[in-house]
Nucleic acid binder design. Structure first.
Length: 422
DNA sequence: TCTGGGGTCCTAGGACCC
DNA sequence: TCTGGGGTCCTAGGACCC
């Protein structure tokens, strides 16, 4: 039996914790560059604003003057997420975070559904009381069904107390008949269009399809989804269980850039961040890839896009080496005369933990390097992420994404919560 | 004027081997 | 018209998730 806890409208709920004036209003949180909608309040959903909607298209759905638009503050959201997860982990077993706002778990003991329901409903209340975030919990024999159960818990919290059990086979049948195929976890836009074209409208229709057909016409992945809907746990991989195979840092710039140094400055920042994450995960990268591209949406500008992957002599997580390699790759793909809108640095061929093969011919002294990096990390922890940086990355700013919708009211509070956790 | 930033898995097809 | 029968490894591309 799997439980799934999911924070309702998470980013919007975070903003509401610090500014109750947003309660009951149409609120959306915008992505980097205030580009598109990545979270919506129930009121904004009801107004028809879709997920991923470009900010400038909001007016096509509703009066934009009634919509509160906020720039995303991921550090704040991460902090509140940690508090929710820490409360949860005191009450349940095997809590495995799946994304910033949701986690799977199992029940502590095999208890009567009724007792457990009461306990879980109390837990939902406690999270709201202590952290301020509304959450929903769904239970089912597989993760895919737990997702379905969670949706139901969320849809009408007054009936469900925010908790829904999808356990009895008869109940599962009925619910699957009412679940549109496109709402099933693992079935995205393309697959649902293809399935609907064959008359598969609901999850119940899909379950009735012959498994052999699902596998041959589509894939083993989809067959697993089907088996999960039948109540069989297929151990769908949880990304958090799995060590990263690649780490990427990339950004769309606030405007199109043409200056090589400005873009190189961004590349340095991305490489620093990537190296830092490698060290946090106690991993090393075997190769580094840098990519650049123009603006898809500007038909009037010549478009250029390219990437270059370079192998490192020795797998490493050292910032200086990674920055150097990312810049080497950048030099290979830079073309004068084009405009650039986005760039990124990716660490690949990642190895984890100990047993890292060092190149015996490598002249660099790794222990010294490691001490230096550790010191830089702790200073940056203490005084802010960018207190100490490499010289090539110090000039600053042209590339940084633009965000113009921060909620001024809660800036100080934001700082305060950040400090509390240091 | 304005369209995010991360990740994963699977499959098909080509190169190459015996 | 016919064209062995296996393997492995790598890459590109397509699909999905939040």
């Amino acid at each position: 039996m799997y439980g799934l806890i999911d924070c309702n409208n998470f980013f919007v709920s975070c903003e509401r914790v610090f500014d109750p004036r947003f309660n009951g209003k149409k609120v959306v949180v915008l992505s980097n560059n205030d580009g598109c909608v990545i979270a919506r309040s129930n009121e904004a959903k009801a107004a028809g604003i879709p997920m991923g909607c470009p900010a400038f298209k909001i007016k096509e759905h509703t009066d934009p003057r009634q919509v509160i638009q906020l720039s995303a503050r991921h550090i704040l959201y991460r902090d509140l997420s940690d508090r929710v997860m820490s409360l949860m982990s005191q009450e349940v077993d095997n809590l495995k975070q799946y994304s910033v706002d949701e986690a799977f778990f199992t029940l502590r003991r095999h208890e009567e559904v009724e007792t457990s329901h009461r306990k879980m409903a109390e837990l939902v209340k406690r999270v709201k009381q202590y952290v301020g975030i509304p959450v929903s919990i769904g239970f089912a024999p597989s993760r895919t069904l737990a997702k379905v159960a969670n949706h139901i818990a969320k849809r009408d919290p007054r009936i469900t107390d925010g908790v829904y059990w999808l356990v009895r086979p008869e109940a599962i049948d009925i619910i699957l008949q009412r679940t549109p195929i496109e709402d099933v976890w693992g079935i995205g836009r393309r697959l649902s269009a293809s399935l609907q074209a064959q008359g598969i409208k609901t999850a119940a229709d899909f379950v009735k399809m012959p498994s052999s057909l699902v596998r041959s016409k589509y894939s083993v992945t989809l067959e697993r989804t089907q088996r999960e809907l039948m109540g069989h746990d297929c151990q769908i991989a949880n990304p958090v269980d799995i060590a990263h195979k690649s780490i990427m840092t990339s950004r769309t710039f606030g405007k199109v850039l043409t200056d090589r140094d400005e873009i190189a400055d961004a590349i340095v920042s991305f490489a620093e961040r990537t190296a830092r994450q490698l060290r946090d995960e106690n991993s090393v990268a075997g190769s580094i890839m840098t990519y650049v591209r123009g603006d898809y949406f500007r038909q009037d500008l010549p478009f250029y896009s390219n990437s270059c992957q370079l192998v490192l002599d020795t797998p490493t997580n050292d910032t200086m080496t990674i920055v150097r390699q990312a810049l080497n790759a950048f030099n290979n793909i830079w073309r004068e005369g084009f405009t650039y809108r986005k760039a990124g640095v990716m660490a690949l061929d990642i190895q984890h933990g100990g047993g890292i093969q060092l190149n015996v011919f490598d002249p660099e002294d790794h222990s010294k390097l490691r001490r230096l990096m550790t010191s830089i990390d702790s200073i940056n922890n203490m005084y802010g992420r960018r207190s100490i940086r490499l010289a090539p990355g110090i000039q600053r700013g042209e590339w940084s994404p633009s965000q113009n919708h921060f909620n001024a009211e809660s800036q100080t509070l934001h700082f305060y919560t950040g400090m509390m956790y240091r």
